[in-house]
C-alpha cells in the first residue's frame, strides 16, 4: 500500500503538471486550452523521434519540451487570440482549441504513424528503496522535477516583476495595459509556460508509456479532472490536485479492488465539487477557512 502511495504520487505529479499548465493558461487568459494534452503528446513524440534518429537523450528531450512550448504559443495565436479579440466573453475558444487538438493529434499520426513506439529509457531501469517500497528513480525524478517547477513558478509569480505583471493581467487586463504591460505578449507567454509544463510532463512519463499520438486524450482528461478538483485558476493547487488524483487512482486499486481506479477517483471528485463547486483551493474555500480560523482564534 505504501508502494502504491509512492507510485501514485509520482504518477500524480504528471497529472499535476498537465493540470498546472491548464491553470496557468486559464489564470492569465480565462481560457481552458483543450489542446493541453496534445502539448504533452508533442513533447513525447518529438523526443522519441529525435532519440531514434540518433540524438543524445537529453538533447532529444529538450527538443521535445521546446516543441511543446512552441505549440502552446501557436495555439494561442491561432485559436485563442482571434476569438477573444472579437468578443472577450464568448466560448468560441472551446471549439477552436478543440480543433487545434484534433489537428495536432492527427498530424502527429500522419508524421509518425498511429502506432506506438519506444521512448528512450532514462532512469527506468534503476530503482531505489524507500521504506518497504521499491520505487524507480524515474518516478523519484518525476516528483522532484514537479516540485522544483512548482517552487520556481511560485517564486517567479511572487518575486519577479514579470510574474507580478502576469498576475495583474490575470486580474485586470485593461489596467495592466494602462501601466504599460503588453497583454498579448503576456498571454502568449502563459501559453508557452503551459506548453513547457506539459512538455516536461511528457518527457517524465515517456519512459513508462509508449509514445503514440493518442496520449493527449488520456493525460489531458486526467489533468483536467485534477484541475477541476483544485480550482481552475490555481496552478499550485492544480499540482496538488494531480497528486491527489494519482494517489486515489493507485490506492483505490490496492485497497478496494483492481477495477476501482476507474470509478473511485470520480466519486471523490464529484463529492469535492458538490461541496466546493469552484475547487478545493478556490477563493471561496480560502475565505471560508479564514473565517473558521478567525472564529477559532476568537474562541481560544
Amino acid at each position: 500500500m505504501f508502494e502504491a502511495l509512492v507510485t501514485g504520487i509520482a504518477l500524480g505529479c504528471i497529472y499535476g503538471l498537465v493540470a498546472m499548465g491548464f491553470a496557468v493558461a486559464f489564470l492569465v487568459t480565462r481560457v481552458i486550452n483543450f489542446a493541453q494534452g496534445q502539448l504533452l503528446m508533442i513533447s513525447v513524440m518529438v523526443a522519441a523521434a529525435a532519440a531514434s534518429a540518433g540524438w543524445p537523450s537529453v538533447v532529444a528531450m529538450l527538443a521535445g519540451v521546446a516543441c511543446a512550448a512552441a505549440a502552446g504559443a501557436l495555439t494561442y495565436v491561432v485559436a485563442v487570440r482571434p476569438v477573444l479579440a472579437s468578443d472577450r466573453f464568448s466560448f468560441g475558444w472551446l471549439v477552436t482549441t478543440l480543433g487545434v487538438a484534433v489537428v495536432m493529434e492527427n498530424v502527429a499520426a500522419i508524421i509518425w504513424g498511429p502506432t506506438s513506439r519506444a521512448f528512450p529509457l532514462m532512469l527506468n531501469g534503476t530503482s531505489a528503496h524507500i521504506g518497504s517500497a521499491t520505487v524507480s528513480w524515474q518516478q523519484i525524478l518525476a516528483v522532484l522535477v514537479a516540485f522544483a517547477l512548482l517552487s520556481a513558478f511560485e517564486l517567479f509569480r511572487r518575486r519577479s516583476i514579470y510574474g507580478k505583471v502576469s498576475m495583474a493581467v490575470a486580474q485586470d487586463p485593461e489596467m495592466a495595459s494602462a501601466v504599460g504591460a503588453n497583454t498579448m505578449v503576456i498571454s502568449v507567454s502563459a501559453f508557452v509556460v503551459a506548453g513547457l509544463l506539459a512538455g516536461v510532463a511528457g518527457v517524465l512519463v515517456g519512459p513508462i508509456t509508449y509514445a503514440n499520438p493518442y496520449l493527449g486524450d488520456t493525460y489531458g482528461i486526467d489533468g483536467f479532472v485534477a484541475l477541476m478538483m483544485a480550482g481552475a485558476d490555481q496552478p499550485a493547487g492544480a499540482l496538488v490536485g494531480g497528486v491527489l488524483l494519482g494517489v486515489l487512482n493507485n490506492e483505490a486499486n490496492v485497497i478496494i479492488n483492481s477495477q476501482a481506479s476507474a470509478w473511485f477517483p470520480f466519486v471523490v471528485v464529484v463529492l469535492v465539487l458538490l461541496v466546493c463547486p469552484r475547487g478545493l483551493f478556490s477563493g471561496e474555500v480560502r475565505s471560508w477557512l479564514r473565517g473558521v480560523r478567525r472564529s477559532l482564534v476568537g474562541v481560544g
Partner: peptide, 16 residues
Amino acid sequence: LWQEVVFGAIFVVVVV
C-alpha cells in the same frame, strides 16, 4: 487522418 485534420481546421477557421 487527413480528414480529421481538415475537420479540426474547419472548426478553427469557421469560429475565427
